[in-house]
Write a protein that binds this DNA or RNA. Structure first.
Lengths: 300, 300
DNA sequence: GTTCTTGTCCTAAATTATTAAAAACAATTG
DNA sequence: CAATTGTTTTTAATAATTTAGGACAAGAAC
C-alpha cells in the first residue's frame, strides 16, 4: 500500500509487445537494452523478466534468455492508469473558485479539494504551495490553507500589475521588425474585431474570446518566463469576470472593440505614445469592469 | 509515529501553570473554558485532564473537577519543540545554490536536501513546488526535481523583468507627495552614498548592502503583492552575484555609486525622464555584471 | 424548558512507514 | 577486460497512522 506499480505494469506490456514481434526460440537482449526499450530502470525490467519466466513465456538460463512462446493478448496485465489529475489542475481550480464564487478568506480543505479534483492530497498541497507565490492562497497559522481570494485589493493590485506588464509589451511591440509574425496576427485580429463590431447586436458574447486573443497576441512578444507565468493567471481571471458581469454587456463590449482597434491602429502606425495611451485607456476600462463585477458579488 | 504531540504537551504545561496559581480543593472550570485558557481545542484539553486525573493532580467527579494538590515543576512534561525549519528555508536554499554554485540542470534530491536543511521531505517538496512558479526548478519527467538554475537566459529574463518593475516604481516615485517618507529615505541614502564614495578605496565591499537598500527603497513605493514577491527573489540573486564577481570590484562599485546618485538627483528634481534614463543606465550595468559573473563560472 | 457541559463521533492535516523505482556498486561470465 | 547480471542503497510516491479540531447529541443544572 505505497505507490502504484503502474510503471511496472506498463513496462511489462511493452515488453510483451516487443516479444510478440519475435518468434519462439529467439534470444532476448541484455537487461540494459530491454530497460531502454521499455523506458524504465533495470529494476523494473528484472521484475518483468521474473514474471515472464514464471509464466513460461521466456526461459532464463544463466545469462541467456530465450523466448519460449510468442505471447498473445491474454498474457497482458491490467493497468488501471490513475488519471493524472495534475494535468490541468490549475485551470480546474481557478475555474472552481470563480464559477462557484468562493469568497475570500475561505478555509480550504485539502482533503475535500483532493476528492473533488481527483488528485492525492499530496499533489494538491504542492499545487497550493505554488499558488501561494501569487498570493492567491496562504497557509493558516495552525495548518491548512486559506483562500485569500478576489478581494478588492487583490483586483486592484492584479490590474496594476497587468498594466505594467502590458505597457512594456506595447513598447516592445512598436520596436518589432516589419517581418515579425505579430503584425500579421494584429492584422487578422483587426479583421475579426471589425466583423464582430458589425454583428455586435447578436454576437456580443463572442467578445470575451476575442479579448483573450488580443491580449495574448500583444504579450506574446515578451519572451520572459516570469511574465508568461503571470499571464496565465491574469488572463484566466479577467476572462471569467468578463463573462460574468452581465450589466450592459453589449455596450461594454462594443466600446472595448473600439478600444482594441485604437491600440491596433497606433501600433501599426508605430506610434509608441499613442499606443501606450490607448492601451492605458482600455486597461482602465477593463479594471473597472473587474471591480464592478466584484461589487455586484458583494451585494448579492 | 505520526505527527508530534507538541501541541498537547505545551497545553498540558500551560494548564499546570494555571492550576499552580490555585489552591487544593478549588473546582476547575468547564472544558470549553480550559480550552480557551490553553488556546487549544477541547480534544487536547480532555487528553490533558485525563493525564492530570491519572497522576492524581485533579479528581474528576461527574461533571465536577477538583484540584487535589497544587502541581509543582516536577509534574511538567518535556516538550522538545522541533525547530521550525520552514522559517527561512527560501533564504537558505538560494544561499545554498549560489554559494556552492550549483550548476543548471542539476537533479535535486528531496531526501538529501531535506536532511541538509533540517526539514521534512514534505516541507521541502512544497517549497520546491512554490519555486517552480518562478521557473527556478522544475519537475523531472519521472519524478523528482531539477534545478533549472542560473543560466544565461534566466539571468537575461530576470534582468528584463527587474527593469520593467523598477522603471514602473521610478515613475510612481516621481509622483509621490512631498511629505512621503520615501524622500527622507532617499536623502539618507544620498548621504550614505557620498560617505562611501569618499572612502571607496578601503570600504568598497560595503556597497553590496547599500545597493540592496537603494533598490528596496525605490521598489517599496509600489504596494503590490505580486511585485513584492518577486522583489524578494530578485534582490537576493543580484545581491549575491554582486558580492562574488571580484573583477574590478572597486571600479564597478565606484561607478555604481555615481549611477545611484544620478537616479536620486533626478528623482528629487521630479524629472521623470531623467530618472528613468538614469535607472535604465544603472540596471544595464547591473545586468552586465550579473552576466559576466555567470561567464566566469562557465569558464572556471 | 432552556442553557451549559460533556460524551461521542467524524473529518482533516501532519508525519511516519511502506513500497516501487532508480541508481550505484560489486561480482561474474564469456 | 568488457559486457552483463546480482546485490545493495537511496530516492520518491503514497497509504496508514496519529493528533487535532469541530459537530452534534445527550444529559445535567438551573
Amino acid at each position: 500500500m505505497a505507490r502504484s506499480d503502474t510503471r511496472y505494469r506498463e513496462a511489462y506490456n511493452r515488453l510483451l509487445d516487443h516479444c510478440a514481434a519475435l518468434s519462439a526460440g529467439t534470444p532476448l537482449p541484455a537487461e540494459t537494452v530491454l530497460s531502454e526499450i521499455a523506458g524504465v530502470s533495470r529494476t523494473v525490467v528484472r521484475r518483468c523478466l521474473a514474471r515472464l519466466s514464471d509464466l513460461g513465456v521466456i526461459a532464463l538460463d544463466g545469462r541467456a534468455k530465450y523466448l519460449l512462446r510468442v505471447p498473445g493478448p491474454e498474457d497482458r496485465i491490467d493497468v488501471t492508469r490513475s488519471p493524472d489529475g495534475r494535468e490541468d489542475l490549475e485551470q480546474r481550480f481557478l475555474d472552481w473558485i470563480l464559477r462557484f464564487d468562493v469568497p475570500a478568506e475561505t478555509p480550504l480543505s485539502v482533503a475535500e479539494l483532493a476528492r473533488t479534483f481527483g488528485v492525492t492530497q499530496h499533489q494538491l498541497n504542492e499545487f497550493l504551495a505554488g499558488l501561494s507565490r501569487f498570493g492567491l492562497v496562504a497557509r493558516r497559522p495552525r495548518g491548512g490553507w486559506m483562500l485569500r481570494g478576489f478581494t478588492k485589493d487583490f483586483a486592484i493590485e492584479l490590474s496594476d500589475f497587468r498594466l505594467v506588464l502590458e505597457l512594456d509589451a506595447i513598447a516592445k511591440l512598436v520596436e518589432a521588425p516589419v517581418d515579425h509574425p505579430v503584425w500579421q496576427r494584429l492584422a487578422d485580429l483587426r479583421e475579426r474585431h471589425l466583423i464582430l463590431a458589425s454583428q455586435i447586436d447578436t454576437h456580443f458574447h463572442a467578445f470575451s474570446k476575442l479579448d483573450e486573443a488580443f491580449h495574448e497576441a500583444i504579450n506574446d512578444i515578451v519572451r520572459n518566463r516570469f511574465v508568461a507565468e503571470f499571464q496565465k493567471v491574469i488572463s484566466l481571471i479577467f476572462h471569467y469576470h468578463y463573462m460574468w458581469d452581465k450589466t450592459e454587456e453589449k455596450q461594454r463590449n462594443a466600446a472595448a472593440i473600439q478600444e482594441h482597434l485604437a491600440v491596433i491602429d497606433a501600433l501599426e502606425a508605430r506610434d509608441a505614445n499613442r499606443a501606450a495611451e490607448a492601451a492605458r485607456r482600455h486597461l482602465r476600462t477593463s479594471r473597472s469592469t473587474l471591480l464592478s463585477s466584484l461589487r455586484h458579488h458583494d451585494l448579492g
